[in-house]
Simulated scan of single mutants.
Amino acid sequence: MEGQQPDARQSLYESILLVLMNEEVDISRVKNGIYVALNGYEVQERTTEIALISQERNEYLLKKFMIAKTVKGCTPRTLRYYRDTLKFVFDYIGKTVDDITSDDIRMYSIIRMKKDGVTEVTADNELRVLRSFYGYLQREEILTSNPMLKIECIRAQRVKKTAFTEMEIEKLRIQAMETGARESMIVETLLSTGMRVAELAQVRLCEIEGNRVLTHGKGKKDRYTYLNAKAELAIDRYLKIRNDDNPYLIPGRIMQKGDKELERPAAFNCHGHIERHQIEETLKGIAQAAGVAEGNPHKYRRTCATMALRRGMPVEQVSKMLGHEQITTTQIYLDIDEENMKAAHRKYVV
């Protein structure tokens, strides 16, 4: 083994230099110092052979965790995210859940960001899922140690995101009307209510009560959102061209009344609502056709919140409208420029 140590030390030395080169560090000034520092240590390459992975064990623990989350009341979408993320991490690290260490998780996150190119937000979300999973195992006394206790959150750089300008809003409205009644209804409803796309997809016709809509938010928390005159008219125009039995505002599949598919009545076949990604694709197409950059759904939500605040709605009410539990979450959405701040200062500060 001792005969292999110089090779291992040289390999480590070269790996460190490569990292520094990628970070654009002047190698000529540090390489000799690194070599001298390493010379005082016995270096041995860690073996890549690991104990036989028990897929059954991983599946068993994952199943117990998913049952607990289901009992807690997590939505099917959240459950899928937990399951898919955990399965991906376990396969990526290649160890049994019991054998995964803090170092394994740190290295996993580094590789995900450096090699796979995921954002800091995505990497931190994966750590959040692992933190929940291992916290559950420790509370249930399935595991005595929790590798996530040594893992800190990843601080992502916050990039200021903007709302649509008034000119962009009008371009989107015109393009949506030219595209169709359904597209116009989607744009106006999002601008008026600040709904999430997943919330809009789940709206049933019976949940629209005049100018308010019963909205099913995250964590199965319901709230009312409100329609302005433009959104109400857009919904009315859209419903006049509907000719189906689907109970949702936006059906996932349009069938004419009385039509049959697979020898089943239309009322049975068309109960589904539109999928989230279909609305996202619709909005993206409208934005591209209108010449508006970044026409993603969250920008509609941010625009609704920003416009409400600019017109005098207290931030507490904006937060409730968006379905946020914390005002700090709402503040991330707001696009308040210096001119707005100056005007507010003149109005409120002596």
Rank of each mutant, 00 (worst) to 15 (best):
Lys64Ile: 06
Ser54Lys: 05
Val71Asp: 06
Glu45Val: 09
Asn32Met: 11
Thr47Val: 04
Glu49Cys: 07
Ile53Cys: 06
Val71Phe: 07
Thr70Gly: 05
Arg29Cys: 11
Tyr41Ala: 13
Glu24Trp: 08
Ile34Lys: 03
Asn32Arg: 07
Val36Met: 15
Asn58Asp: 01
Gln55Asn: 10
Glu49Lys: 04
Lys69Leu: 11
Gln44Lys: 14
Cys74Arg: 01
Thr48Pro: 00
Ala68Gln: 10
Lys64Cys: 07
Val25Trp: 02
Leu52Cys: 06
Ser28Ile: 06
Thr48Lys: 15
Thr70Gln: 13
Ile27Lys: 03
Lys72Glu: 06
Leu62Gly: 00
Lys72Ala: 09
Glu42Asn: 12
Thr48Gln: 15
Glu45Ser: 05
Thr47Gly: 12
Leu52Trp: 03
Gly73Gln: 11
Asn58Lys: 03
Val25Met: 15
Ile34Asn: 04
Ile34Thr: 02
Ala51Ser: 14
Asn32Phe: 13
Glu59Trp: 04
Tyr60Lys: 13
Leu62Thr: 01
Ala37Gly: 02
Ser28Trp: 08
Ile53His: 01
Arg46Phe: 07
Ala37Tyr: 11
Ala37Gln: 09
Glu45Arg: 07
Ser28Asp: 13
Arg57Glu: 15
Asn39Met: 15
Ala51Phe: 09
Glu42Pro: 00
Ile27Leu: 05
Cys74Thr: 13
Arg57Ser: 09
Gln55Glu: 13
Glu42Arg: 14
Ala37Met: 08
Ala68Lys: 05
Gly33Tyr: 07
Arg29Thr: 10
Tyr41Trp: 12
Leu61Val: 01
Leu61His: 01
Ile67Gln: 14
Phe65Thr: 05
Ser28Asn: 08
Leu52Gly: 10
Lys64His: 06
Lys64Trp: 02
Gln55His: 10
Arg46Asn: 00
Glu24Phe: 12
Gln44His: 09
Asp26Ser: 06
Phe65Glu: 00
Glu59Lys: 12
Glu56Val: 11
Tyr60Gln: 13
Ile67Trp: 06
Pro76Gly: 06
Cys74Asp: 02
Ala51Cys: 11
Asn39Arg: 10
Gly40Ala: 12
Cys74Ala: 11
Tyr35Gly: 00
Gln44Glu: 15
Val30Phe: 03
Gln55Leu: 12
Gln55Ile: 09
Arg57Tyr: 11
Leu52Gln: 11
Lys63Arg: 13
Val71Trp: 11
Thr48Ile: 14
Ile34Glu: 04
Leu62His: 00
Arg46Tyr: 07
Glu45Lys: 13
Tyr35Ile: 06
Asn32Cys: 10
Lys31Ala: 04
Pro76Cys: 03
Ile50Ser: 10
Glu49Gly: 00
Ser28Lys: 10
Ile27Asp: 00
Asn58Thr: 05
Gln55Ala: 02
Tyr60Thr: 13
Leu62Phe: 04
Pro76Val: 07
Lys31Thr: 03
Val36Ser: 08
Glu56Ser: 13
Thr70Phe: 02
Val71Gly: 07
Asn39Pro: 00
Tyr35Trp: 14
